[in-house]
């Protein structure tokens, strides 16, 4: 898992890990029964406390996204349905961040929605900006 932690981000590290797993599922790079990195590997790669990794995996297990096999590791649940659960959850996270940003700038929800619609129309499916406004 290639993951760079955002130190400016207000979210706790374990939340960032959970979101990264969700992202993988939503994009299809992670599929059912795929193994997640071991606690040791991830903690070492990210230079973080192993308990943080365990906290993230525990959260995912609680939601039914992953399961733990003693001695073997953590795997994506075979019953996971990215379209039904992970994509909406991810969308919610993205929306939450956008809304927070908007509020910080003093914008109303309608203004944000208008801007999103316009941007979505102007830019293509690859997400590139359609042009400066």
């Amino acid at each position: 898992m290639k993951l760079s932690l955002d130190t400016e981000d207000g979210r706790p590290i374990y939340v960032q890990i959970v979101d990264e797993v969700r992202r993988g599922l939503a994009r299809g790079t992670l599929g059912p029964d795929d193994p997640l990195p071991s606690v040791r590997e991830l903690a070492s790669n990210l230079r973080i406390n192993p308990r943080t990794v365990m906290q993230a995996y525990a959260e995912l297990e609680r939601e039914g996204v992953v399961y733990v096999q003693r001695g073997k590791g953590t795997f994506v649940s075979p019953h996971v349905r990215p379209n039904e659960t992970e994509r909406p959850r991810l969308a919610r996270e993205v929306a939450r961040r956008a809304l927070r940003d908007a509020r910080r700038s003093g914008l109303e929800l309608d203004e944000l929605l208008d801007a999103l619609k316009k941007l979505g129309r102007d830019s293509g499916p690859d997400g590139k900006d359609g042009g400066a406004e």
Binding site: R40, L46, N49, T52
Partner: peptide
């Protein structure tokens, strides 16, 4: 240190005046 914390049940007390380097290991 991250690896060591996994391999060996350890309690660590780290004293420093520069925290930003080890923040992510700390609880």
């Amino acid at each position: 240190l991250a690896e060591y914390l996994v391999d060996t049940p350890t309690t660590a007390l780290i004293s420093t005046h520069r925290v930003y380097e080890i923040e992510r290991l700390v609880d």
